[in-house]
């Protein structure tokens, strides 16, 4: 993180914001007020106040475990898991390649299963365990799949790589790595524009055949 700046820092770190009960009641009252007095609401909307009102109750609590550590956050219901990881928690290992569920760059594990984090709202993983690429190695000891990607050069630019590795681990866990053909099919949700596919297949096969736990 860069720090040499004297500009004001907005507090967008969600961890610290704990909604007090009173705050919640205030917001609830606001919702009720809007609901019961449509005339006021309309007037507010005319004055473009609707956005301001929305702001008052737009965050929700989210408790989850990320890479083994518990997090209690306040997030907007519209925030994707991907943006929460990258923009709020500085876990930028998970990549954005399309934001539309079409490339696989944002693949993470939720309760051990591969999930496209750009199509997952943060609030959908409340109470779940999320593993990102940052949580795959055990300290300095790389996960066998990370080792295999290094050894077989399963990447060039490295941007699709976290997603590929998370998918590759899941691919073996799911039992979908029994042949080269099967690996190719079950890894086709992860695009690599650098074209590392044959090397990725080699890496997965080696890990699968090595029999180490993934």
């Amino acid at each position: 993180m860069e720090n040499n700046n004297n500009l004001p820092e907005p507090d967008t770190r969600p961890d610290v914001k704990d909604p007090s009960r009173r705050d919640f009641l205030k917001k609830s009252a606001l919702i009720t007020a809007v609901a019961l007095t449509p005339a006021h609401a309309v007037k507010a909307a005319e004055k473009h106040m609707d956005e301001r009102i929305a702001e008052a109750f737009e965050k929700m609590p989210l408790s989850l475990e990320i890479n083994g550590a518990p997090h209690n956050l306040m997030v907007e219901p519209r925030s994707t898991l991907l943006d929460i990881l990258r923009e709020q928690l500085d876990l930028t290992g998970t990549k954005k390649g399309c934001d539309l569920g079409q490339c696989g760059a944002c693949t993470v594990h939720v309760d051990g299963h591969r999930v496209i984090s750009c199509l997952t709202l943060g609030i959908m993983v409340n109470g779940k365990k999320v593993t990102t690429i940052e949580g795959l190695a055990k300290g300095d000891q790389l996960h066998p799949m990370q080792e295999a990607f290094l050894k077989h050069d399963g990447f060039q630019c490295g941007y699709c790589t976290p997603g590929q590795i998370m998918s590759a681990v899941a691919c073996i866990r799911e039992g979908h790595a029994n042949s080269e053909h099967e690996i190719r099919e079950y890894m086709s949700g992860n695009i690599c524009r650098c074209g590392a596919y044959p090397n990725i297949v080699n890496a997965i096969q080696e890990v699968k055949e090595g029999g180490l736990p993934v």
């Binding site: 700046n5 930028t92 790389l142 990370q146 990607f149 490295g158």
Partner: peptide, 22 residues
């Protein structure tokens, strides 16, 4: 690759990943 470890662990930082202050 000499930078491979950074890439397979998610530590390699690309342009949009510098969350500078403010």
């Amino acid at each position: 690759r000499v930078d491979g470890r950074l890439k397979v662990t998610g530590q390699a930082k690309y342009a949009a990943e510098f969350n500078v202050k403010g």
